[in-house]
Design a protein around this nucleic acid. Sequence first.
DNA 1: TCACTGTAATTTTTT
DNA 2: ATTACAGTGA
Length: 642
Amino acid sequence: MDVFKELNTLNEKQREAVTAPLEHIFVLAGAGSGKTKVLTHRIAWLLETEQAHPYQILAVTFTNKAANEMRSRINTLLKQPSSGLWVGTFHGIAHRLLRINWQPANLPQTFQILDSDDQLRAIKRILKTLQLDDKVWTPKKVQIFINAKKDQGLRAKDVVINEDDAWLAQMFSIYQIYEETLERTGTIDFAELLLRTYELLRDNPALLEHYQQRFLYVHVDEFQDTNTIQYQLLQLLVGTLGKLFVVFDDDQSIYAWRGAKIENIQSLNHDFANNRLVRLEQNYRSTNTILKAANKLIGHNQGRLGKNLWTKYSGGEPVFLYSAYTETSEAQFVVNKIRVFNYERKEIAILYRTTAQSRIFEEALLLQGIPYRIYGGLRFYERLEIKDMLAYLRLVQNQNDDGAFERVVNTPKRGIGERTVAVLRGVARQQRMSLWIAARLVIENRQLKARASNALTAFLDLIEQCEKCVHGLQLHEQVEQIIIKSSLGEHYKKGGAAEAQKRLENLEELVNAARQFAQINPSSSTILTEFLSHTALEAGVGQGSQYDDCVQLMTLHSAKGLEFKVVFLCGLEEGLFPHKNSLEEGNVEEERRLCYVGITRARQHLYLCHSESRYRYGERELCKSSRFIDEIPVELIEEVRA
DNA sequence: TCACTGTAATTTTTT
DNA sequence: ATTACAGTGA
């Protein structure tokens, strides 16, 4: 790249951040102020004028989408694929470090990642064996508790328990058993990826020094979303040698619910001395009207760092407001409007608070034959049949994976019922062994009736056969073989016609995904392990989009970082947005920031929609329009009719 | 052991 | 409305 030519495309503030001397740089970047541009240009600047080597550069994002975007923009800028440069999500980078350093991290080489669903199942199993009242100790609550502790960097054993607090004591004891279980099964959950990586570096000084010397330039996107353990990890990595470059917007902090600490922004100044703050407040995205609406809305929040976005674009059409009678007419209005616009369809987005709202828009779009793409919702690798197949693969690769064992031991049905599995669980727990080994033992000791024993033996043989037969095969052939051997394919053929077809197609798609994965990644003996991790870390968002030019449907959370010519912000109703749960927890400000994110996605046209009534739990409920609508000055709004 | 039936709970967002 | 789960009979 011609650095100096590129610099001319930046404004003064952006240039200041990109060409800043080698200190810690904090960039307060408002929506649409070109933060990704600054980040990518900074990296290019380091490479071209500071003689940095690609392998000295680390760039961390929060979503896979953002990571991919950044990687491709860096490549475009450098006019070649950048090798050696690490760009990824916090979880992706932690995973990479753990794979390389599995031994000092005290992990088996084939360790696997549990997604939220796997984690919840593991917790349910533990609660069942402990025979606790599942009204008091709901799996969800336990899951939230454990993840919160891990996000704070706390192990069960690290915490001093006040014996008076029976609830807390019980929670920690569950946490402890959970930790032991995961240890035994060779699996780790999402939060553990971060915590384990933190401990790995903290407890291995030589290793830490190695990475500190390597990653001299650490970049973090969306810094306002970091949680405690992520912050601590950054502190370790940057050390005294490294230079930190963070980009953040406190008004777009929307992940407090999963442990993001907005206080981390304040800590920066103290923990990383010799720093420089650059403010990007010029917006290049939206019309002045849209920006004014956004500024006024977010002005209702207290304790902001404070900034005022401005733009050179004057005026723009008003923000349109549509009040529907029902959610169906809301969707109809949106779809009719979409037909009028003469833009590319991918320039149009329908945004909503909850995934459940997508269905009604999907139906309306389908009816009118408008191509659309839904982000989020049930992702490819989360589908039932895919999870089943992945469980077979996991079990073939690591027989101690109890979660995988339980999932497929009787799928498809092979006569191993609850009773038999209960016996295995009992033995496994008593002798602290995996279900697989317990099964072996139980068969040897003839603890089961002949019928159950035979069925179980057949299952164990099946898995071992699979293990033998996939040896030396290509990754996608391994998947293909196991679909056949496990007779999962057969199994799904039997279901309802249309649904069964879909499931079979998905299994076929999994084979394709494996083929693609093997093409992108260098072949190695651990490719199956890596593929399985990939399915957990990137739940397969890109699968199955048939058209390129589609109307974009997504939740407000997944819209962060994107922009569209036309935005429909839907379901603006009290209880839905702001969501009831947030109101109860007193988190209206985060909901408002979410609304701010939504509004600032729009370049030219913004439609706010709400419905007077909505189906919930099978009943029609009356809905009040959202307070957020009232917080936008009326002179910016124009009511429209269908 | 498994299919069937009735009842209770469920819906915030993502790695 | 849809789904998950527990209880019941074959």
